[in-house]
Amino acid sequence: MPKTLNPLQLVADRWQPSARFVERAALACVVMSVVIVVTGGAVRLTQSGLGCPTWPTCTEDSLTPTPAMGINGIIEFTNRMLTYVLCAVVGVAITAARARDPRRRSLTRLGWAQFWIVAANGIIGGITVLTGLNPYIVAAHFLAATSLLTVAVVMWLRAREGDAEPRDVVPRPVRHIGWALVVTTALLILAGTAVTGSGQHAGDASRDVHRIPLDWREVTQLHADFVFVVVGLVVALWFVLRAVRAPATPRRRVAELFVVLMLQGVVGYVQYFNDSPEIVVGTHMLGSCLVWIAVLRVFLSLRERGEAVAVPQPSGSGAQEPVRADEPTPAGR
């Protein structure tokens, strides 16, 4: 009976990507995940949320925007098309992870998880249009995009390390602070979606878009309260890491997170005291992604899984894949 051909296996039989290529493919997924969030925000901030008034086509009679729809139709449709670019980038990451030898199933699974999140969020985006920019669906759309960013970051960081059992590089109570930081930041992002759903930028100025029935200033205050808690946890974690003489990597990651938080705080205050100008709101959305990435990097730096295994070379070839120079060995951490 003929053997069933697996397209990914056929690629793996003919192409052997380097560890750095897999890592860069995973990083490209992170970049595209951020781009999708920022361009999605641009759709809302330019009042283009219903630039294409239906889904999956742009109008009842046209797949693409018509000249009569103007710039709003172009902006909304362009954001839809970027989803296909994202799918292509994720596809490259999946293929590279599958072709890598030795095979790392964890990376392949993370790649496929991104694919299914993209597919699900595409449907959520369609529901967003069909429900006339319902703020709760808009919030779900953003949270799904954040979930995609989470998986993309985890894949990127996992591509830089091995598959050994995780080993804490700090005492267990310090890991608990890391968990508290992740949970509190997630609540901060969730509060941010409530600010968006009740705030001034509904996404379309041509019709009455339903808003979350909350005072956006009070919700913004709650959002700011979470910021103070997150900053407090970051400062506490930095001092604790110094006290337990933690390796340099987690201390550096915490310092990077603190800088990102301070910059994001400045943007947030400029946004609040200047009546939320569109360009500043968009910058704040970009900052939200950068904060979340930095938090995940802090959390995952509190444990290690060894070095990635090099590709076995044919005997006598004398060739070896270069060792990463920018990452310390387990003994040196």
Rank of each mutant, 00 (worst) to 15 (best):
H176M: 12
S317V: 00
P17N: 02
W55G: 09
A28I: 04
C58K: 00
P247Q: 09
V151R: 01
C289G: 08
V153A: 00
V174P: 06
R242N: 10
G232R: 03
I279L: 13
F226T: 05
L45M: 09
V254F: 14
S106D: 14
T220R: 14
A152L: 07
V90M: 14
E304S: 08
A310N: 01
A308G: 04
S317W: 05
L214Y: 13
D101K: 09
A28Q: 01
G203H: 13
M81Q: 09
S288D: 04
R100G: 02
D225R: 05
D326E: 04
S301E: 04
I189S: 10
F21P: 03
C52K: 02
G265T: 08
A202V: 15
N79I: 08
V22D: 03
L261G: 03
G203S: 12
V267D: 06
V89K: 01
L286D: 04
V234P: 02
V234E: 05
V266F: 08
V138R: 00
L233Y: 00
T150K: 11
A331E: 12
E60S: 11
T283A: 14
G199P: 06
C87I: 15
L45A: 05
V89C: 06
S48W: 13
V298Y: 03
S276H: 07
R158N: 11
Q47M: 09
W15V: 09
A152I: 00
D163T: 15
S288N: 11
Q9S: 13
H176Y: 13
D208W: 12
W55Y: 10
V298R: 00
G162L: 13
V281K: 07
G40E: 02
R104T: 03
D204F: 15
F226V: 04
P53I: 12
V230K: 07
C289F: 11
S288M: 11
Q114G: 04
C52D: 01
A246D: 12
G162P: 05
V43M: 02
G268Y: 15
R303K: 12
T185E: 10
L181Q: 10
V295S: 04
Q16Y: 00
Q271T: 13
T4S: 10
P173T: 14
V182W: 10
S317C: 03
T185W: 07
V92G: 02
P314G: 01
R172V: 08
V183T: 10
S288L: 09
I94E: 01
R251T: 06
G332D: 14
T185N: 10
W179F: 06
R252W: 13
V227P: 07
H141M: 02
V154R: 01
L86F: 14
V260F: 11
I189T: 07
G111Q: 00
T46S: 12
H284W: 03
R242D: 10
G306S: 03
L63E: 07
N79R: 03
